[in-house]
Write a protein that binds this DNA or RNA. Structure first.
Lengths: 250, 250
DNA sequence: GGTATTAGTATACGTCGTATACTATTGTGG
DNA sequence: CCACAATAGTATACGACGTATACTAATACC
């Protein structure tokens, strides 16, 4: 509708692999594995040893074939990565029309953060750029629903999705980084030491007084966990959205 | 202070390379290049042909040495990448104590987004995890200053930094993806077609009614550019922060 | 002026993604 | 029922990449 631009045939093919059922022609030998076997093997490897360990050889070994056999199921590693992203993120949490929109959105953001922390390698893959599969859509649908209940116009709902999703992905990065370190066997203590030593360079450096003040300031009385900090920020963001909703819907 | 955990010696070395002046021993032959030459060459290559084109061979060729010569300046490609991140992001925009905090923060967020869009390959590198250099600190300082002016306690200022920075990075992703495509010679029209074709699968799919409604809805009357959309979201986020500031500082 | 130290090179290795050519296995049309 | 076409998986090989190792050559200090 909006364009006659020729779509990249490779991207188109990769997208089809995520959406269309695989044709099952009856001619040759029986396949010994399925595309899903490949994806599950890749996920298991990524979970165990990180994204760097997901090589065609390693995946093939895990499913019991040679590396080249995988190309019968995915035309390239990029195509396999596409499937990895979609399968790795899994389905979104359920929504319910009865819940206040703000509760559902809060639950969604926490679920997305948890998902990203549980599979920290997901954020290493091209997340926005890749072809988007059914799970990706389902996550969008799961936040579109409660936000639609605000009564905002569709275009504004799209805006709000960007805000919540943007904050959620961006503000999860530190936790993801920690999760990644943990997956590599680095203790939280070691990780904190490395980050702290790095940031510590600001302390005493006359160029960074304001930031040094934050680092040297006494922590809050109870001390917030990372998840609590995330939620605190999320509520500020939702405050801003709610304010807009009230203003627009009168 | 906060830990006796042994810091990773490799990470420590990489961090030092970003912060400490290189020792200039007088013994051997004169170096024909500088570490900065290497970084600048790498940046030029990344700008021209994307991060994938930044290989040790390519960088070395550009500065006129062999690939192995680069290892006299950086112990590994990761270390070079660290320098790439810091040099690539450049200095932050100036702040001024006179400006209302909200204006400075708005300017900061737009500047960061512009920076990321201008060098879309920056976001492909480990951004939060890497050792952080002076420019990284300077960007933090540049947002810490106006947020300190709100009168919030230091711990809360840290929270607000996470919110604004999280939103800014997360919400810039789509634009970055477009910028990356553009850098590869893909027209905005083609890019829109690819993304549209992909998202279009939701339209008519009974699983995604709410999201499909957003896609099929008539766009707003004037039609927002991506920068305007970003700013719209940013203002909602800042509304939420401002509300908190008013509530806390009374 | 010899000697230790350093800059840069040459060569080589292991890993990765994948192109090409093959062998083996299956359903189908004559 | 059987030749043939289509497919699954393998074997081999290639080029690119990061980098270890061993070298050659240049420079400053004792």
């Amino acid at each position: 509708m909006q364009s006659a631009a020729a779509p990249d045939p490779e991207l188109q093919r990769r997208s089809e692999l995520l959406w269309e059922a695989r044709s099952v022609p009856g001619r040759g030998p029986k396949p010994s594995i399925t595309a899903d076997d490949v994806v599950q093997a890749a996920i298991a490897i990524a979970d165990a040893d990180g994204l760097g360990a997901v090589t065609m050889h390693a995946v093939a070994l895990k499913v019991g074939v040679t590396a080249m056999a995988l190309y019968r199921y995915f035309p390239s590693k990029d195509a396999l990565n596409d499937a990895l992203v979609d399968a790795g993120m899994g389905p979104p949490p359920p929504t319910s029309p009865q819940t206040p929109w703000r509760d559902d959105v809060t639950a969604w953001a926490h679920a997305k953060r948890d998902m990203l922390c549980e599979r920290p390698w997901l954020a290493e893959l091209p997340f926005v750029a890749a072809p988007h599969g059914p799970n990706w859509m389902a996550w969008l649908e799961a936040i579109a629903r409660p936000l639609t209940r605000t009564g905002l116009r569709p275009a504004d709902v799209g805006q709000m999705i960007s805000i919540v999703d943007g904050y959620t992905r961006g503000a999860s990065d530190t936790s993801i980084s920690l999760a990644r370190a943990r997956a590599r066997g680095i203790s939280e203590r070691q990780w904190g030491a490395a980050v702290g030593a790095d940031l510590g360079r600001a302390i005493g450096d006359p160029r960074f007084p304001a930031f040094a003040a934050i680092l040297t300031a006494p922590p809050e009385s109870p001390g917030r966990t990372m998840a609590e900090s995330f939620d605190f920020g999320l509520q500020r963001v939702l405050d801003g959205i709610e304010q807009y909703v009230k203003q627009v819907t009168r």
